[in-house]
């Protein structure tokens, strides 16, 4: 019965349509770069020392803020639900619970935080698949409990 339930949940998770999400990666960040630098330095230009402007509004800070936005979107709970379904959310959370609290292997934890960053640099449009994978692993961990 337990395995049948988990199997049904796995079917729900796998068959969930992937969400249509806007492209958000290094390319989009680079597109935003000149526009943001122009607008931010223009505002600063009126009465700010050049050093202050350079410190706050440079390519590095703007690129990291743009890429940060893309990266953090991956961990949006609504994105998880849209990727792995509502039934996938609980095993997804269970996966993180097990990885962090019960079998805290630092390479695993590190990998989980690094993997979502990979699509920002390499063309890998279906980042949402990762949530399905995490949820399925969560189910397997639950089954083996």
């Amino acid at each position: 019965m337990r395995y049948a339930t988990l199997l049904i949940l796995a079917i729900f998770i796998i068959s969930k349509d992937l969400p249509m999400s806007d492209q958000c990666d290094r390319a989009t960040a680079q597109t935003a770069l000149p526009v943001r630098i122009f607008s931010e330095t223009t505002i600063d230009g009126r009465d700010q020392p050049v050093l202050v402007t350079r410190f706050f509004h440079n390519k590095v800070t703007i690129m990291s803020s743009e890429l940060g936005r893309c990266y953090f979107n991956f961990f949006d709970l609504n994105f998880v639900v849209n990727s792995a379904s509502l039934f996938g959310l609980l095993p997804w959370l269970y996966f993180f619970y097990r990885i962090f609290l019960q079998i805290p292997k630092y390479p695993c934890i590190l990998a989980i935080f690094i993997i979502p960053a990979v699509p920002l640099f390499i063309a890998f449009p279906q980042v949402a698949y990762l949530h399905k994978v995490f949820a399925i692993i969560g189910l397997v961990l639950w089954a083996k409990r």
Binding site: S65, R69, F72, N73, D76, L77, N78, V81, L86
Partner: peptide
């Protein structure tokens, strides 16, 4: 479902961090 979406919004990373 609508309510859950709005609940999860509270922990939206772009809202919290970016």
């Amino acid at each position: 479902r609508e309510y859950l979406i709005h609940y999860f919004d509270a922990f939206e990373p772009s809202f919290l961090f970016t």
